[in-house]
């Protein structure tokens, strides 16, 4: 059974400026695990895709970062190869994990993303186990 779907679209060029000098900013929305993971691939796409992932999951849960107990860092996207290969996994913790358990949502959430010349389009789907 479907719990929620979230789609987010961002211009990935916006993340180019954060790559080197804005770690403080990045730290507040990305976890240390994510920052370590993205550093391996040295691509602004990691940050852009991760941001879209978090936004799309907020939407799938039917909330926003500023009206729920879910923290940005409760949703982590980790890549196991360069972002273009789409080999990545979502991990939920904190209140996001709590919501997932309480609503019988299947973990991990399903997701897909598309990288165009200028944009990231990220879609996440939350499904529930039916009794």
């Amino acid at each position: 059974m479907l719990f929620g779907v979230g789609i987010d679209i961002e211009n990935h060029h916006r993340f180019l400026k954060y790559k080197k000098s804005e770690l403080e900013y990045l730290l507040s929305i990305f976890s240390q695990n994510e920052l370590n993971n993205y550093a391996k691939y040295n691509s602004h796409l990691c940050y852009a895709i991760s941001f879209c992932c978090k936004e799309s999951l907020f939407k799938a849960f039917g909330v926003s970062w500023n009206n729920s107990k879910i923290q940005w860092t409760d949703i982590e996207l980790l890549f196991s190869d360069i972002p273009e290969t789409k080999k990545a996994s979502i991990f939920l913790s904190g209140f996001a994990e709590e919501l997932m358990i309480n609503n019988n949502i299947i973990h991990p959430p399903k997701f897909d993303y598309t990288i165009t010349e200028s944009q990231i389009i990220f879609e996440s789907i939350l499904s529930c186990n039916t009794k």
């Binding site: 804005e22 403080e24 900013y25 507040s28 929305i29 970062w65 500023n66 009206n67 729920s68 107990k69 923290q71 940005w72």
Partner: peptide, 20 residues
């Protein structure tokens, strides 16, 4: 983040979330 740096603020996003 601009204001956080400019005024050396001790502010967490979750606090802003709760306020919002």
């Amino acid at each position: 983040e601009i204001f956080k740096k400019k005024y050396s603020l001790n502010i967490e996003l979750k606090a802003i979330g709760k306020y919002s």
